[in-house]
Simulated assay, not measured.
Amino acid sequence: MTTVLAPTPSAAPARKASRSRRGKIAVQALRIALVIFFAFPIVFMFVSSFKPDLQIFKDLGSWRGFVPVGHISLDNYLGVFDRVPAARFLLNSIGISAITVVLGIFVNSLAAFSLARLKWRGRQFVLTAIIATLIVPFETLALPLVWWVNKLPWLEIHGFSLVLTTGWLDTYRVQIIPFIANAFSIYLFYQYFNSIPKELDEAARVDGASWFMIYRKVVLPLSGPAIATVAILTFLPAWNSYLWPLMVVQTEDLRPVMVGIQYFYQLNVAWGEIMAYASLITIPVLALFVAFQRSFISSIASSGVKG
C-alpha cells in the first residue's frame, strides 16, 4: 500500500512567492529591454559626436556604432563653435524658454484658478472655448499671427525718452509673448486645482484672505507636480521651436538653437558636427526632465487621468 504525503502548509506560499519573484524579474527585464531600445538613437548620437565622418559611416550597421571606439576626439565640438555662433544660439534659447516657462506658469495657473475656484457667469463656456483651441494646429495660425505681430505697437527706450514703435518682427518678444498663454497648460492646472479641497478656500476667506492670497499661499504651494509638468511641457515647444523663428527672425544674434541646425547643411555637410550640435541642444532637455521627473509622473498620475 502506497502512502501519499500531503504537501506541507509552507509549500504553497513558497511556490506563490517564487512565481511572484519570477514575474518581477520578467517585468524588470522587459523594462530594461525597452529602455535600451529607445535609448539607441540617443546613444548613437552622443557616441557619433566624438567620431569623424568616415568612421561614423564605417561603424554603421555594427555594434561599434554605439560604442566610443576608434578615433575619439572633441574635434566635432570645437568645429561646432567655429562653424556657427552656437554659444549665442544656446543663450538665446535658454533665455527665451526660461522666460516663456516662468510667465506661462503664472498666467496659465492664474487663469485656471479663476476657472476652477471662482464662481462667475460664463466660466464653463470660456473653459470650453479654451479647450476647443487645442484642435487648431499652429500651422494654420502662423501666417495670420505674423501679420498681427507686425502691426502690434511697442514702447522702446531711446536715450531718456519712450518711443512708440510698430511691429514685433525680428525681436525676442515675438518669440516669447505669443506662446505664454497655453490652452493645455490652463486645462492641466484646472484639473489639478479641482482636486484640491475647496474647504481650504473657505477657511482662508474666513481668516480675511483675498482670492489672490489664496492662489499664492494656499493653492500654488499644493500644486508642485502640476507646476513641474507645465514647466516641462512649456519648455519643450519653446526649446524645439523652428518654424516660427524662421518666419519672424532674420538677425542671426536673435536666433534660437533649432534654426542653427540649417547652418550645417550648407556647403559641405559635416555629420560629426551635426551629431555634436544635436548632443549640445539635447543636454538641457534631458537635465530638465531628470530634475522634474518625479513631479511630472506624479502629476500625470494624479491629475492627468481625472475626468
Rank of each mutant, 00 (worst) to 15 (best):
Thr3His: 07
Val4Gly: 03
Ala6Val: 01
Ser20Phe: 03
Arg21Lys: 05
Arg21Ile: 04
Gly23Thr: 12
Ala29Asp: 06
Ala29Glu: 03
Ile32Cys: 02
Ala33Arg: 03
Ala33Asn: 04
Leu34Glu: 07
Ile36Met: 15
Phe38Cys: 11
Ala39His: 04
Ile42Pro: 00
Val43His: 03
Val43Ala: 13
Val47His: 05
Lys51Val: 07
Asp53Cys: 00
Asp53His: 00
Leu54Ser: 14
Gln55Tyr: 07
Ile56Cys: 13
Lys58Met: 05
Asp59His: 11
Leu60Asp: 05
Leu60Ser: 14
Gly61His: 14
Arg64Ser: 14
Gly65Ile: 04
Val69Pro: 02
Gly70Asp: 09
Gly70Lys: 07
Ile72His: 04
Ser73Arg: 01
Asn76Gln: 15
Tyr77Trp: 12
Gly79Thr: 10
Val80Trp: 06
Phe81Lys: 02
Leu90Trp: 09
Ile94Tyr: 11
Ser97Gly: 08
Ala98Gly: 07
Thr100Cys: 04
Val101Leu: 05
Leu103Met: 15
Leu115Thr: 11
Ala116Asn: 10
Arg117Pro: 05
Leu118Lys: 12
Gln124Ser: 12
Phe125Asn: 09
Leu127His: 07
Leu127Ile: 05
Ala129Tyr: 06
Pro137Val: 00
Leu141Trp: 05
Ala142Met: 14
Pro144Ala: 04
Val146Asp: 02
Lys151Gly: 05
Trp154Gln: 14
Ile157Gly: 01
Phe160Ser: 13
Ser161His: 04
Leu162Ser: 10
Thr166Cys: 02
Leu169Gly: 10
Leu169Trp: 00
Arg173Thr: 13
Ile177Gln: 04
Ile177Glu: 01
Pro178His: 14
Phe179Tyr: 08
Ala181Tyr: 11
Asn182Trp: 05
Phe184Cys: 03
Phe184Met: 13
Phe184Ala: 09
Tyr190His: 15
Phe193Val: 01
Phe193Met: 15
Ser195Tyr: 00
Lys198Trp: 00
Ala204Gln: 09
Arg205Val: 06
Ser210Gln: 07
Trp211Ile: 00
Lys217Trp: 10
Ser223Cys: 10
Gly224Leu: 03
Pro225Ala: 04
Ile227Lys: 03
Ile227Asn: 05
Ala231Asp: 02
Ile232Ser: 11
Leu236Trp: 01
Ala238His: 09
Trp239Cys: 13
Pro245Val: 05
Pro245Arg: 03
Thr251Glu: 15
Thr251Pro: 03
Asp253Ser: 15
Asp253Asn: 14
Leu254Glu: 06
Pro256Val: 06
Val257Ala: 08
Val259Gln: 10
Gly260Lys: 10
Ile261His: 02
Phe264Arg: 07
Gln266Asp: 07
Leu267Pro: 00
Val269Ala: 11
Leu288Glu: 08
Val290Asp: 01
Phe296Lys: 04
Ser299Thr: 07
Ser299His: 12
Ser303Arg: 03
Gly304Thr: 10
Val305Phe: 05
Gly307Ile: 02
Gly307Phe: 00
